[in-house]
Design a binder for these strands. Sequence first.
DNA 1: TATAATAATAGTAATGATTACTATTATTGA
DNA 2: TCAATAATAGTAATCATTACTATTATTATA
Lengths: 127, 127
Amino acid sequence: MVKYSRQREGILRNLQSRRDHPTADMIYDSVRKEYPNISLGTVYRNLTFLTETGQILRISTQMGADRYDGFVKPHNHFICKECGMVEDMEYISCDDLISEASGLYPGLIENCELQFFGKCKNCLSGQ
Amino acid sequence: MVKYSRQREGILRNLQSRRDHPTADMIYDSVRKEYPNISLGTVYRNLTFLTETGQILRISTQMGADRYDGFVKPHNHFICKECGMVEDMEYISCDDLISEASGLYPGLIENCELQFFGKCKNCLSGQ
DNA sequence: TATAATAATAGTAATGATTACTATTATTGA
DNA sequence: TCAATAATAGTAATCATTACTATTATTATA
């Protein structure tokens, strides 16, 4: 039985109010302004809960800590190899990719994650 | 200046001889049969080197340690949420996805990684 | 072939991200 | 209001990965 918690609500709202794909630690720093003695463990526990219940997305980028995304409508991500920035992309439909692959794969495909890597506009011009 | 090392060669060949996307630790266990006192640090250092020189691929799966792939021809991956297995998929061309996205994105897209998640055939039937 | 320069290694310590543990606090159904 | 228990704060532990350093292996050149 799941019980309400202010901390969980605070974490979810924090994540829904931003589009910068923060790490657990960045969320911790930010939520601490509202709940000064929230613990990092609480942040991690709730991020896992919110991910498992489909309220947020977890993104592994192979550069440092996992990122979290409060925007759950299916979309793709661009990750800058230079500055590590994670940016939303809405160019390619994962639903289409899933139906295409499902017809060929013997298992059950439930979701997909499409990541592009390269250099963002800022890093290109600042070079 | 890069110098040859038997250990690096052993790691590369080990990875090229299998299709199970092992973790650094699994590669360490396996390569240790040939080089009994290779160190885990050497395995990690060379996996990073081989990844950066494009000789192997690194895959982050958001379930445990990173996986490595000696098969570098572009392809997609299916990851079973139940048993963690990573399987190759050659259904969708990343090159096509990159050209599609490149026309729309202001930065420079260099490569892409497409992962599907769900339940593999084994886990479906064993349930 | 011997040698000097230095890249790579083994072994170990350190770091960073995440999870586990436990006594206390908050939520909620009766 | 109260009892049951989910969730928390704070801390310790774990897991994956990187850093450090003295020693060894590779390689270009004499």
